[in-house]
Amino acid sequence: MRLAFILGEIGSGLRRNLSMVTSVILVTFVSLFFVGAAGMMQMQISQMKGYWYDKVQVAVFLCGDNNSPAASCASGPVTAEQQATITTMLESPAVKPYIESWTYESQEDAMTHFREQFKNSPIVDAVSSDQLPSSFRVSLVDPEKYRIIAETFSAVPGVDSVIDQRQLLEPMFEIMNNASAVALVLAGLMIICAILLIATTIRLSAFSRRRETGIMRLVGASKTVIQLPFVLEGVIAAVIGAALASVAVWAVAQFFIVGYLAERFRDVAFISVSQALVLVPILIVLGIVLAGISSAMTLRKYLKV
């Protein structure tokens, strides 16, 4: 009986405040969609980091014929002796624990890789193998420990430069991180909007039903019976907004990321739809929480029992 009564109250409240409820739904939808977008962006970043960081290596480039300005190249191209010293150093106990594996890439190997990478570009014909430096490709146990290798090898005679390939990826990750930060800031602003809007809606709803609530108080209705319809009104609107945001997140993952980006850029690891759907329960809970916060704020002020 009491449940049916509360449900009836909610229904009439939603109908009476239809335009306000609609705006609550839309604002929660937009704000939570921004949260979802930021979430997907972060997932994508960590996905790509995992994918690339496994592959990237530290490259120890050796001096070639191109008169490198590095001090360690003063004596001209790397000699076999210098190369042997570097090999010994790679196997030495000081460095060995940090290295997972290493390979030597000769100028011819470098040329082969270069041809593969730029096979559609006319630049291939303009480059010959002696223009490309030979190098040691070092995979690290922990890619963060790049500095140790750099410090050890950069001053060794015959070494031109030590380059962490990870650094080549950093600008891209930085852009994505910034984009997701912007999305989060927008989401934050929209969430503030949503909270205030829900509070206003509940206030209006409480005002338009003050006769009923006044009588309910007088005849001794419990706090739950009086306040729950208002709280649930806000929660229902916010959950509908969160559900719409979830649908939007799914649509972006399904049609934009999987359907478009992944087709276009086949060699980049994109997040899957099921990964994006992990965000759905988070968005729904977030919607409930923000409705809860704003109704708690409002009811304490406008609906005393």
């Binding site: 009986m1 009491r2 009588i215 005849v219 001794g220």
Partner: peptide, 11 residues
């Protein structure tokens, strides 16, 4: 009836 409904009396 409203006074009875809100305190949970049965129909």
């Amino acid at each position: 009836a409203f006074a009875m409904q809100v305190i949970g009396r049965s129909r």
